[in-house]
Amino acid sequence: MRDYLDDRSLRLRRERSDQPASARPFVLAGVLCLVALSLIYLDQQGIISPLRMLLQQAFSPAALQLTGLRNHTEDLIGAPRSEDDLRATITALEQEVSQLKAENLRLQQAQVENESLRQQLQIQREQPWHLVGAEVTVRPPDAGRQVMLIARGSADGVQVGMAVIGQDPSGPAALVGVIESVGTHTAEVLLITDVSSRISARVMHAGQAHLGLVQGQWQRGSRLSIGQVDRSAAISPGDAVVSAGLTGSLNLQLDLATVPANIPIGSIEEINPGGQGQSAELRPFVNPDQVRYVWVILNQNE
């Protein structure tokens, strides 16, 4: 094991030594800092991004396996432990199974598709979207940005700016994020909760739709907010918010401006009056932190 930790043997000091480290390691560290800064610059210019994407793709299968292992472990840990919990779970499951059987009989389904495909079919039946399903491979290790990697790329028709949706078991299919960059078999998704994510949206209230701009708030301690809603517009907690499909026409400095209209985003939790327009805190229909499987909207029927 020691050989893997070091390439040279290391003798730990037993006696006190007042001999400080020389300047040589600090010079090396300084040089490496300059190399790192140069790499950042080159990556931001897009010169070495393809190389990074290629390496990312090479690690993707292993990351997918490990993420699956983690999800499986999470499920095991989250499973009920006490006898009462188990009984309650069994009762709930029996009711659910019963309902599912009845539904299956009504619809004369011969067999049950796997959950992800079934969800995809259901979404495609209800919405005019052409979807491609994708597993979430890696989530960011840092608190700074809300992004995730998915196991689909340009080879599957995925392009920058496409909307990515997910679905919680009890909720509608809803917007999770937007494709930010694409490799051949992987893509990075900027989550709607990231502070740099801005999507044009409509607040649905009593048959009327009021325009606004949904922005991520994760780095500010919450999830989502909607702003720039007309002060005279009547909105109230519980109102649904859907994408407006107008992000491009709002003239924002964004590559991510091709989100189709009418994708559910969330519901209004708390209204903050004041300023030139109204703003409100939103509760997203799908928690982007929890999704394990998502769908990319490739295009929609006109």
Binding site: L37, I40, R52, R145
Partner: peptide, 10 residues
């Protein structure tokens, strides 16, 4: 950086 989709060197 490679795994986290951050610019290389960050």
């Amino acid at each position: 950086d490679i795994l986290a989709a951050t610019p290389l060197g960050t």
